[in-house]
Design a binder for these strands. Structure first.
Length: 648
DNA sequence: CCAGTATCCCTTTTT
DNA sequence: GGGATACTGG
C-alpha cells in the first residue's frame, strides 16, 4: 500500500486495521460495498474512514454519514475526532429521516409545504386518521372496518414498499377487501390533510425528499454536490425509497460507500430489504466489494452457536465468520418451570456474575417484544438491581408528554390541527364536538395562535378557556426561553394532570425530566424535530432511571434496539417457540426467516457469556395453545454447541 | 353534547 | 390486561 510513503498521515492505518478493513478505509473514490459480519469492526472501519478522508484533505462538510440512529453517527464522529482532530466533528451525520427533514425544511415551498411543518409520529398520525374517519362517517358499528393503528400500518406498508393500497389490502389484509374503497378514500383524505395542515409523517419525509430529488434537477444538483463522499451504515435495513435516495445523491460523483450485513436484516416490516445489498453492484457495476469476516467480539463457542443459527437459514448468506479468540464457555439453554422461575434464574445469575466483578452495564437482557420483560422488571426491582430499559413503550408516546408538547407545537405550527384538538379536549366540559368547533373558529381567523385570544366560547367553558388564553399570552417565543415556556405549560397543565390520572406523581416526574431536556435547546424548532425524529428511547416508567444516579445499570432491551451494541454477558429471555419466533411469524416462511435473523442479531451481541431461557408451561390465550418448546432456532443447534439445563 | 361505565378485541419490532 | 368503541345518564 502506498500509505507507507506518505508521512502526511498521522494515523498508522496499516497497523490499526486488518487487510480488508484497510482496503475499505482507503478506497475512497467510486462505489464501494462492504459486507460486514457481526462484530467484524464495522464501526471501527467507518470511523477510520471518516478520519482518513478528512486527513486526506476532504472538507468535513462534504462528507455525509447516514446511519440508523443519530446516536450511532454521533458516536462515530466523536471517535473520529478523538482519533484525528476536531475537524471530524463537523461531518454531518444522522438518520435518513433527520437528513430528509433538514433538506425539506429548507425547500419546503418546492414540495407544496410551508416552512416549519410539523412531523407526525405514529400517535399523531393515528389521531389524524381517527378524526378523518369520524368526519367521513365510516361507520364504526361496522365491525369489519380496520382500527386506526391497522389503517396506519396499511398506509405505511404501501408507501414503504412502493405498492398501492389495493396490493397491500389484498395481500396482507384480505379480510378487509370489502372495505377497500373506504380505505383508499381515507388514505387520500389523510394525504390531503397532511398538506393542508402542514404535516409530514415519517414516511413523507422520505417520499417527499425522493420526489424533490427526482423532479427538481436544480435542487438535486445543489444537494448532491454538497456531499461529495457518502457513507451509509446498516444498508441491509434500508428500503426501496432510501436506496433510491442514495442513488440520486450519489449519481453525480458515485463516491458512495454502503455497509451492511444481509444476515442481520430485521426491518422487513418497515419495507426494508436485504436485497438492496444484492442490487447495489447492479446499479453500480464498477462497485468494489469487500467482506469483513473476522469477528473480534465473541469467543469461539458463541460463534459456533451463532453460525449454526444462520446456517439453518433458507437462503445462504454471503459470508462466514471466524475468530482468533479462544476459550470461553459454551452457551446455555435453560428451561424453567414457569415465567417466575425464568425471572428468578436471570436474577440469580446476574447477581452471581455481578459478584465476579463484571459491572452491571456489561450485562444485557434481550427479548422479542417490549412487554416480555415485565415479569423480570418486578423481580429486579425487588432485588434492588438498577436497570434501564430500551425500546418498547416510550416516554414520548405517553399521553401526558404529548399533552405538554401539543402546547409547544402550535406555537411553531399554528395549523397543527391535531395539537389544537388535543389542547381543547383537555379543557373541562369540552369533548370532541366542541374541540372541533373551537379549532374551526380558530383557523378561520387565520391569525396564527393569537387567534385564540379573541375566541368566543360558551359560559360553561369560559373559565378554563381564560386560563388557556393567559398561558398563551405569557409564552411568547420571541420573549421567553424554551425552558421558561416549558415551565409555564407545566404549571398550567398540572391541575389537569392531577384530575385525569391517579398516578400523577410519577407522571409529574416525567414532566420535570422533559424540562431538563428542553434546557439543552435554544429554539422550539430543533427541539420539536428532535423529539419527533430522535426521541429518547428509554422508557421512563421505571423509577430507577430517576432515583438511581449512577450509570452502572443492567440493560433491558428489545432485540431491535440492541442492534449494533455488545455486552460481555447476554441473556435472551422467552426463547420459546410461539414467543420468539412469535406465533404470528410461524405460518409465513419469509417472516420466519426474519425472526431467525433477529435471533442471530440477539445472539451475536454477546462477547463472553450467552444464556437462552424459556418457561415451559405457558398458555397462549389467543391461539388457545400450550407453549412449551424452546425456540426452533435454538433447538436446531447441534447439541455439541449448547449446554441444556432444567431449572425447577 | 360531555363524561362515566360496560364490553369486545387483539396483543411485534421503529424512524 | 389495555385500548378503543358503544351505551347511558345527566
Amino acid at each position: 500500500m502506498q500509505i507507507k510513503n506518505k508521512p502526511l498521515y498521522s494515523i498508522n492505518y496499516e497497523k490499526e486495521l486488518n487487510t480488508p478493513q484497510l482496503e475499505a478505509v482507503t478506497s475512497t473514490e467510486g462505489p464501494l460495498l462492504i459486507i460486514a459480519g457481526a462484530g467484524s469492526g464495522k464501526t471501527r472501519t467507518l470511523t477510520y474512514r471518516v478520519a482518513y478522508l478528512v486527513e486526506k484533505g476532504v472538507p468535513a462538510h462534504a462528507i455525509l454519514l447516514l446511519t440508523f440512529t443519530r446516536k450511532a453517527s454521533q458516536e462515530m464522529i466523536q471517535r473520529a475526532s478523538r482519533l484525528l482532530d476536531n475537524r471530524c466533528a463537523n461531518v454531518p451525520g444522522g438518520t435518513f429521516h433527520s437528513f430528509a427533514n433538514s433538506v425539506l425544511q429548507k425547500y419546503a415551498d418546492r414540495i407544496g409545504f410551508k416552512k416549519g411543518f410539523s412531523i407526525l409520529d405514529h400517535t399523531d398520525s393515528g389521531s389524524l386518521i381517527s378524526i378523518l374517519r369520524k368526519e367521513k362517517g365510516v361507520s364504526s358499528k361496522n365491525r369489519s372496518f380496520p382500527r386506526k393503528q391497522t389503517l396506519l400500518n396499511i398506509f405505511s406498508r404501501a408507501v414503504n414498499k412502493s405498492l398501492t393500497i389495493e396490493d397491500v389490502v389484498i395481500d396482507n389484509y384480505p379480510h378487509f377487501a370489502i372495505e377497500l374503497d373506504a380505505i383508499e378514500d381515507l388514505f387520500n383524505a389523510y394525504k390531503r390533510h397532511k398538506v393542508k395542515h402542514n404535516f409530514l409523517d415519517y414516511d413523507d419525509l422520505l417520499t417527499y425528499l425522493h420526489m424533490l430529488l427526482t423532479n427538481d434537477a436544480e435542487i438535486r444538483k445543489i444537494v448532491s454536490s454538497n456531499y461529495f463522499y457518502l457513507m451509509v451504515d446498516e444498508y441491509q435495513d434500508t428500503n426501496k425509497i432510501q436506496a433510491e435516495i442514495v442513488y440520486l445523491l450519489a449519481g453525480e460523483h458515485t463516491n458512495i460507500m454502503v455497509v451492511g450485513d444481509d444476515s442481520q436484516s430485521i426491518y422487513a416490516f418497515r419495507g426494508a430489504s436485504f436485497k438492496n445489498i444484492m442490487t447495489f453492484p447492479k446499479i453500480f457495476p464498477d462497485a468494489k466489494i469487500i467482506k469483513l469476516e473476522e469477528n473480534y467480539r465473541s469467543v469461539q463457542p458463541i460463534l459456533n452457536l451463532t453460525n449454526s443459527i444462520i446456517d439453518n437459514a433458507e437462503c445462504k448468506y454471503t459470508k462466514r465468520l471466524f475468530t482468533k479468540k479462544t476459550g470461553g464457555m459454551k452457551p446455555v439453554l435453560a428451561c424453567t418451570k414457569n415465567e417466575y422461575a425464568q425471572s428468578r434464574f436471570v436474577v440469580e445469575k446476574i447477581k452471581e456474575i455481578h459478584g465476579e466483578t463484571t459491572s452491571l452495564k456489561e450485562i444485557a437482557v434481550l427479548f422479542r417484544a417490549g412487554f416480555h420483560s415485565f415479569g423480570l422488571e418486578i423481580e429486579l426491582a425487588k432485588e434492588g438491581i438498577p436497570f434501564i430499559k430500551v425500546g418498547g413503550f416510550k416516554f414520548l408516546e405517553s399521553a401526558h408528554i404529548k399533552d405538554v408538547l401539543a402546547h409547544l407545537r402550535v406555537l411553531h405550527n399554528p395549523d397543527d390541527r391535531i395539537s389544537w384538538y388535543r389542547i381543547f379536549l383537555l379543557l373541562d366540559k369540552v369533548g370532541p364536538k366542541t374541540a372541533q368547533k373551537l379549532y374551526n373558529d380558530l383557523s378561520k381567523k387565520n391569525t396564527g395562535y393569537s387567534g385564540l385570544f379573541t375566541l368566543k366560547v360558551k359560559p360553561a367553558i369560559s373559565q378554563s378557556m381564560s386560563r388557556l388564553k393567559k398561558l398563551f399570552e405569557y409564552i411568547d417565543p420571541t420573549i421567553c426561553s424554551l425552558s421558561q415556556i416549558g415551565d409555564a405549560i407545566i404549571d398550567y397543565y398540572t391541575p389537569i394532570l392531577e384530575s385525569n390520572y391517579d398516578d400523577h406523581p410519577k407522571r409529574s416526574k416525567d414532566l420535570e425530566h422533559l424540562v431538563t431536556i428542553m434546557e439543552r435547546y435554544d429554539n422550539i424548532e430543533s427541539f420539536l424535530a428532535d423529539m419527533a425524529l430522535e426521541p429518547p428511547n428509554t422508557s421512563m416508567d421505571d423509577s430507577f432511571s430517576i432515583n438511581y444516579s449512577g450509570d452502572d445499570r443492567l440493560v433491558l432491551s428489545t432485540v431491535h434496539s440492541a442492534k449494533g451494541l455488545e455486552w460481555k454477558t447476554v441473556f435472551v429471555i422467552w426463547a420459546l417457540d410461539g414467543r420468539f419466533p412469535s406465533l404470528h411469524a410461524i405460518k409465513n416462511s419469509e417472516e420466519l426467516e426474519e425472526e431467525r435473523r433477529l435471533m442471530y442479531v440477539a445472539a451475536t451481541r454477546a462477547k463472553e457469556r450467552l444464556f437462552f431461557t424459556y418457561p415451559n408451561d405457558v398458555y397462549d390465550k389467543i391461539s388457545k395453545m400450550m407453549l412449551y418448546s424452546p425456540s426452533c432456532f435454538i433447538d436446531m443447534v447441534p447439541g455439541s454447541n449448547i449446554e441444556k439445563q432444567y431449572i425447577d
